[in-house]
């Protein structure tokens, strides 16, 4: 059984079909990129996979549960337990230090553990910057904190929305390297991007246009 199984999902806002009968399967440990121009339905797709929105039609089976049928309270629980989110604008709590930001994720999930949070920061190479506030960190550093935050609770899926959209090339490579490590450790990655280079890093790329899944590309050079 696939980790994520999206079946004939549509999201309709009045006349607009943000998603139109999309089906997609993502296997455990897979690294999938979702591409498409703006307005293609990427964000809607991301919201639905991230348990922040529900489809108008269709089923979204995540780890055996149809999240399209769950209450928003249950969706919060599922998101907390199974999804690690990374955003284009990083989104850190600006009055908390790097390590505290990681701990916030632990706090909502289970128990804050500073040692573990520091370890996660160490993993993204920011152990030395743990006590810095977001305003004292560069964009690349902030995004690495967000990666640490996303993986701290060992989620089933790491869902990243344009994770390198606000980063320079150096930092983009650092983040992509982190993704590669995560992938090698068996983490499932879904990365929404419009950057072909980022998409190329994935095993498989699906392309959305006008809410429809128009193309699926397997990266044959993956892992080389």
């Amino acid at each position: 059984m696939s980790l994520l199984d999206i079946r004939h999902v549509s999201k309709i806002y009045g006349e607009l079909r943000a998603l139109d009968d999309v089906s997609l399967k993502v296997e455990q440990g897979e690294w999938v990129a979702i591409m498409g121009p703006s307005g293609s339905g990427k964000s809607t797709m991301m919201n639905i996979i991230g348990c922040m929105d529900k489809p108008t039609k269709g089923e979204v089976i995540l780890d055996g549960t149809d999240i399209a049928r769950e209450s928003s309270k249950r969706l919060t629980d599922i998101r907390r337990d199974k999804i690690g989110l990374i955003f284009q604008q990083f989104h850190m709590v600006n009055y908390l230090t790097a390590v505290e930001n990681v701990m916030v994720s632990q706090y909502y999930h289970s128990m804050p553990d500073e040692a573990e949070a520091l370890e996660a920061l160490d993993r993204v190479g920011l152990r030395e910057r743990a006590r810095h506030l977001p305003s004292q960190l560069s964009g690349g550093e902030q995004q690495r904190v967000c990666v640490a935050r996303a993986l701290i609770n060992h989620p089933e899926i790491i869902l990243a929305d344009e994770p390198t959209g606000n980063l320079d090339e150096t930092n983009e490579n650092i983040v992509l390297d982190l993704f590669r490590q995560l992938h090698n450790e068996g983490t499932t990655l879904i990365v929404v991007t419009h950057d072909p280079e980022v998409a190329d890093a994935a095993q498989r790329t699906i392309v959305l246009e006008h809410g429809r899944l128009v193309r699926e590309v397997i990266n044959e050079h993956f892992g080389e």
């Binding site: 991230g50 922040m52 309270k73 919060t76 907390r80 337990d81 989104h91 600006n94 994720s105 999930h109």
Partner: peptide, 16 residues
């Protein structure tokens, strides 16, 4: 708003 949204995205319940 952003921070609250983030907290909720990170799994904060309404009660939290």
């Amino acid at each position: 708003r952003k921070e609250i949204g983030l907290r909720k995205a990170l799994g904060a319940s309404d009660g939290a």
